[in-house]
Design a protein around this nucleic acid. Structure first.
Lengths: 352, 352
DNA sequence: CGACCCCGTGACAACGATGTCAAGATCGAG
DNA sequence: CTCGATCTTGACATCGTTGTCACGGGGTCG
């Protein structure tokens, strides 16, 4: 039995048609099918029609990966995106922006959640690489991304988003974390607050450290002794932040204002303030916007990041690298913006 | 020049090492490398060590797609997920649940946004299929999914989420839309409302129709003439919903209560009520939960869906099909739950 | 001690596509 | 009408991996 006497694929609906099946049905060679499917020139109109007809009849879809194996450019037309969690609004907006840029190029996006687990980071990256993604957009959490060095040497574009890499050099797109935190802090200082608490994310996260630094340095510039400033870290979700805020606010010498370094932490603080009925007394500025932050009472004053811009720029950098940009690593900084909505404009309590 | 005299891959850091390179370095055959990499039995401990050493030295990552081409099961270990927008909290939660189930199986997830564009639906599905995903989890918007029939015949698992398919039969996982809408409506009726408006999503969306039906039928059961009930449809985002709500509430005979059929619409209505300063006078129950809905004042009463459960069940169905379940299509209904938070418990205005 | 079996191993074809190349058909110019 | 140039087409090798098979060596059993 010759290869072509395979039941003509229409016979066996469970088998997937290949170019051979299409070629047989159209009465042409496989290479000609390939040419038609890929829109290559120098095929007669009649042949094109025959091939397209056959392809439609069989519901043929070319196998991108098989082609990719042989194709000169070796591109899989897919991208790997690693974020904290696809369930987080920051990540959702970033993901969407990446997708929009990728879609224009016919590139599909693998998305994976990290959950601040360094091991998961490496597993996810390895999973992407085994699938031969054309580029990586990564939010990282492990101490060093040195494990990516061989891949970078091979020329795979890697863009770090939200957090900068350690142990390797590559493009990154981040918010101006220290500046934004300083801006938030100054906003509170200018309204007379002197006892401001910092509630922050896990200590190991590069971004968290930057925000903490911006906060403390701004206090220093305004002559506030940073020795007694309450700095609470390692808060990773709403619940831990809520509990920490409750303890802080019911403890001795509670702060008159709080700076929270991340959206989930901000929400936890809002909850704690509500529970204590002090949401109109204690000022709050959060880093990273909070959904519906403008509809709460008081509105939540935040230093908003621009996750869509971060995602868009990151994706554009990946494609620039794929298009041959071999310049040295670029560090793009996306500005943050203070949005005053009420909670950050509460003056320090006079009575006490 | 023999194939093996290729520079040994360590020489040229831009080339990606293959099993041939690993085999050459370890001094074994390619098939043995394959065995080690895939953990197949019957390889001596010494050989395993040599191969792993060589693989580590070269930073070898097997090409999943090349293997897939030859492998008997033909599985790409990837899944396609199509949602309204990855930037929507409902989709984010669903996506996350799918990812968690897939991760256990070593399966990666392609995520794509639909934006309620029927053409984009087909383009995205085709993109998934060309990448030979093992299964599809789809939120659809086009009038018919008949174009999937050949693929279904081939045995590719397709699970429809959130909305049921038209023109084909396959597994689906949906909320109890009509029941949930009826529940919301009853909640308002029991508090004395008689003039209740419906603000809903695009008419063509199957889910939207179900919710509208549940709403109207419940009114009917309570003897409310549905002739004069304000039914406003084709609202697809916050802004259009806000404008529609403004017009409705400032028009003649404004309703004393509103049922909004979708999270973005609910938010638009909340904004409109705020603008008019009537958020403590007009009752509101929304379908689908709203982020921070409990922190608004009044809290937003909703019929909450369970996107995580929907995603988990959908992913489990895909894997059940892949594991050989050939039963007839299953329709799973995930219950909704009314969460009273204040806005739905506002009584009808007496003064008027 | 011979027959048999199992273990470890590698040569080879094949998966579905594309790059290369050469052959036949067609066409225009002289 | 001939010759070279151009267009159209398909045979074949190949991409990186895995399934098949065969081979040699060592152990077991009668």
């Amino acid at each position: 039995m010759t290869p072509l006497s395979n039941h003509s694929a229409a016979d066996n609906p469970r088998s997937r048609p290949t170019m051979r099946h299409v070629a047989a049905l159209a009465g042409v060679g496989v290479k000609t099918v390939s040419r038609v499917v890929n829109g290559e020139p120098n095929v007669s109109a009649a042949t094109i029609a025959k091939v397209l007809d056959a392809a439609r009849t069989l519901d043929f879809q070319p196998d991108l990966h098989a082609g990719n194996l042989r194709r000169a450019d070796g591109r899989s037309r897919s991208l790997g995106l690693l974020v904290g969690s696809v369930d987080n609004p920051f990540a959702g907006a970033l993901h969407r922006a990446v997708e929009d840029v990728a879609l224009e190029r016919g590139v599909a996006v693998f998305a994976s959640s990290l959950d601040d687990d360094p091991e998961r980071e490496q597993v996810a990256v390895a999973a992407f690489l085994r699938r031969r993604v054309d580029g990586l957009i990564l939010t990282t959490v492990s101490g060093s991304q040195g494990y990516l060095a061989p891949e970078l040497r091979r020329g795979t574009p890697v863009v770090f988003v939200d957090r900068e890499p350690a142990g390797v050099e590559s493009d990154s797109v981040v918010s101006d974390n220290a500046d934004g935190a300083a801006l938030a802090t100054r906003h509170l200082l200018e309204r007379g607050h002197r006892r401001i608490a910092y509630l922050g994310d896990r200590r190991g996260i590069q971004t968290a450290g930057e925000r903490r630094r911006g906060f403390l340095e701004e206090l220093g510039r305004h002559g506030v002794a940073t020795r007694d400033v309450p700095v609470i870290e390692d808060l990773h979700d709403e619940e831990s932040a809520r509990r920490a805020a409750l303890a802080l606010l019911t403890g001795e010498e509670p702060p008159t204002a709080v700076f929270s370094s991340q959206n989930l932490v901000t929400i936890g603080v809002v909850r704690a303030l509500r529970e204590l009925g002090r949401h109109r007394e204690v000022a709050l500025v959060g880093f990273d916007d909070v959904p519906l932050g403008d509809l709460l009472e008081p509105g939540v004053t935040v230093v908003a990041q621009d996750p869509r811009a971060i995602g868009r720029i990151a994706a554009e950098r990946v494609f620039a690298r794929l298009d041959g940009d071999t310049g040295s690593p670029v560090r793009e900084i996306v500005p943050t913006r203070l949005i005053a909505r009420g909670s950050g404009e509460i003056p320090p309590e006079v009575s006490r």
